[in-house]
């Protein structure tokens, strides 16, 4: 095995572990904002690392892998931000565990809370 193959293999393993952890976070977290936190961060680094690993294994693919990496690093935060905003404006507010419920939600000065409604989808 050459040194490139070793680096590529390690990156692929790290990437798949983080992809798995992101999905585990999606499954375990209690509300949608925390799910977005786990989902965005872990899957972004996981996909970046795995694609970079494939780029190391096949050096002639490196440039296109870099395009894919840049695109993922650019688009994932935007889509999670759009989803968080849409969910808040739709009337699903963040879960707050501490006692200070009034001060912990600063966004309600922009979008005042209505009575939370049950959704059937």
């Amino acid at each position: 095995m050459s040194i490139m193959e070793i680096i590529g293999g390690i990156l692929i393993i790290i990437g798949s572990i983080f992809l798995f952890l992101g999905a585990l976070g999606i499954y375990r977290m209690p509300d949608i904002y925390n799910r977005l936190q786990a989902g965005t961060k872990a899957t972004t680094l996981g996909a970046m690392s795995l694609i970079l690993g494939v780029g190391f294994l096949e050096p002639s693919w490196m440039l296109k892998s870099l395009v894919l990496i840049i695109f993922i690093a650019y688009s994932n935060p935007i889509s999670s931000h759009a989803l968080a905003r849409a969910t808040y404006r739709r009337g699903h507010y963040p879960l707050i565990l501490s006692d200070d419920k009034e001060n912990m939600d600063a966004y309600q000065e922009v979008v005042p809370h209505e009575k939370e409604k049950e959704e059937k989808v």
């Binding site: 990437g15 798949s16 992809l19 992101g22 999905a23 999606i26 949608i32 799910r35 977005l36 989902g39 899957t43 972004t44 996981g46 996909a47 795995l50 694609i51 894919l68 993922i72 994932n76 889509s79 999670s80 989803l83 849409a86 969910t87 739709r90 699903h92 959704e119 989808v121």
Partner: peptide, 19 residues
Amino acid sequence: PTAGDRVVALDTLTTIGVS
């Protein structure tokens, strides 16, 4: 429980699928 949760899951599925 909500539509947003489903979209988050779909987004994660897409990223894993790309990898």
